[in-house]
Amino acid sequence: MKEDAMKTILSDLNGSSGDIEASAVVSLDGLMMASLLPADVEEDRVAAMSAALLSLGERTAKELARGTLNQVLIQGSEGYTIMTEAGSEAVLTVLAKKDAKLGLIFLDISRAAKALSNLLSGA
């Protein structure tokens, strides 16, 4: 099943760095496809927010001539939320610690996004 395959990719991602705390795959219209999120997180809202932010990011990049969107990054006082396009149908949302080494995380995220994109496009 695709959901299991997605969860495997997420679980590899979460295990790849101690800085990554949680992750999820969301459809572009804001529905949860697979997630490894803390139990107290409201999945529906996170999914909808990921889709909304990615879409706004896309529009902003386009409006300001920054090309096609790769990623939206939100830095809060307690950590990062990083949303990355995973193929043409999904968003990979990652929660990371506040002192996370971003360069390393970005590598792991882009690897996972690629794997998800391949999985979802059936490649």
Binding site: S27, D29, G30, L31, A48, A51, A52, S55, R59, E89
Partner: peptide, 19 residues
């Protein structure tokens, strides 16, 4: 800011506002 619906809304229209 629209996206292709992947739920029941897909039967009604081919894009839905997400932000």
């Amino acid at each position: 800011t629209d996206a292709k619906p992947t739920d029941g809304v897909a039967a009604l229209k081919d894009s839905t506002t997400v932000a």
